[in-house]
Design a protein around this nucleic acid. Structure first.
Lengths: 241, 241
DNA sequence: ACAAAAGTGTTGACTATACACCCATGG
DNA sequence: CCATGGGTGTATAGTCAACACTTTTGT
């Protein structure tokens, strides 16, 4: 099995995905730790097959890492500085070459292919964190969720990619009604509010927030959710539109 | 002189520019007519050199066509369907090969390079139409301004690229205060209003429009402009921020 | 009965829009 | 002095944020 089949993919063009999830009142991003002597952290990414569209490629990459089909994703920006060359990982790969070469996972041509400058198309995705189980790719040591406010130092410009993805998410959140992709099928209004507060990193007034969200006319009110707490039970809602 | 030096540019990646201008109360787009037996219309575009960033490449392409440095431009979307192959123009080129081959403008390798699928990064630009003189590239028969509402049928997905550029322009216009890039150095409030009406394709109320624009606090009021018409002379404004 | 948290109503400030009026200009 | 078009003020409606109050729940 070959990792980078330089025949199958467009050259010098990649896709990197900022996969957002939400848990414990924190907005999280899925980050790979790359399998090397020294650890590198990076956004999940991949390449574009000759016969597939860039959107299909992004979907395939997301499915490989999340196991989910039909997740919300959107391209938001291209990163194309000429120095976007992955020196760190490339040198790590080179040092592993002998070991891996035996498994025919990395030949000279693949290394040459990887060593070049890459223009990367940034996608961001919104997933229900409970529905998915992160899957490691062959290169990954681990794949984990990190609080978007406490990310490790990522390779190349990947930290900047996250920052710009978050900016785009904030701009699009209300306009495109996409916040609910981060929540389970049913949720309370308080959960929606805490999600918004995590995304915008600022508090919202409870009553006004409820009004604003209900005025969107995209939520169906279901039965109440009795938690056993000594207070009024909140309604559950379901997104529909 | 060689047109497509397949050694100099990234493979299968292009840049196409939607260059907006404004004249005679119409929003216009710069369109090339390609030099062939049958005419093809296309957005000005180009390729990315190995050592330059995508933004630099877009600037270079714009300068080649407009003669202007420092014009406002912004990437807005990537177009990456797998069928983005320029069959029409490619076949036109093939038929011209013998003629051009004598001038060493088009060799077999360049043709192979051009015949492939291209992923294209869409940029839009805003220029003061009076400051620039459209320049033809070697492939162009002519370069002309077309009303954005009356474009000819362009090659591939270029009509869709214009539509999406216009949508992005509308979303960003107030947020990024970029409308004034389309106007000369000094202008009247009526000219600003007519520009907005051309961009959004809808009328604005005169008095409220003036209030809204002045409240942006980015215009400096200059002397009055006496046109000789039998009415109150409007003020001239200059953008400053 | 009480504390805690959810739901809803009311107020005042701000903004957007429609209407009205006045003013400068050249014939 | 009049027609034309530019500048500005005001009233109304609509939106947004702060505060207050009521309701439900389990102890």
């Amino acid at each position: 099995m070959k990792l980078f089949d330089e025949q199958s993919f467009l050259h010098q063009l990649s896709i990197d995905c900022v996969i957002f999830g939400y848990k414990d009142a924190e907005l999280k991003v899925l980050i790979s730790r790359i399998k090397m002597k020294r650890s590198f952290w990076a956004l999940p990414g991949g390449f574009i097959k000759h016969e597939e569209s860039i959107d299909q490629a992004a979907k395939r990459i997301l499915e490989e890492r999340t196991g989910l089909k039909d997740i919300y994703l959107e391209q938001y920006r291209v990163f194309g500085e000429p120095n976007r060359i992955n020196h760190e990982v490339f040198e790590g790969l080179t040092s592993l070459r002998d070991e891996w070469a035996e498994q025919i996972m990395l030949d000279e041509a693949s290394l040459q292919w990887l060593a070049k400058r890459f223009v990367s198309i940034g996608y961001y995705a919104l997933v229900d964190i409970n529905k998915m189980h992160p899957r490691k790719s062959e290169l990954d040591d681990s794949v984990d969720w990190y609080n978007v406010k406490q990310l490790p130092a990522l390779i190349m410009d990947h930290n900047e990619m996250v920052t710009q993805a978050l900016e785009t998410l904030r701009l699009n959140l209300d306009r495109k009604l996409i916040a609910f992709n981060l929540l389970p099928d049913t949720f309370t209004m308080k959960e929606v509010q805490e999600l918004y507060e995590a995304i915008y990193d600022k508090p919202f007034a409870r009553n006004n927030f409820q009004k604003k969200i209900l005025d969107l006319n995209v939520l169906e009110r279901l039965e109440k959710k009795f938690t056993g707490a000594a207070n009024k039970a909140p309604y559950l809602y379901r997104f529909q539109q």
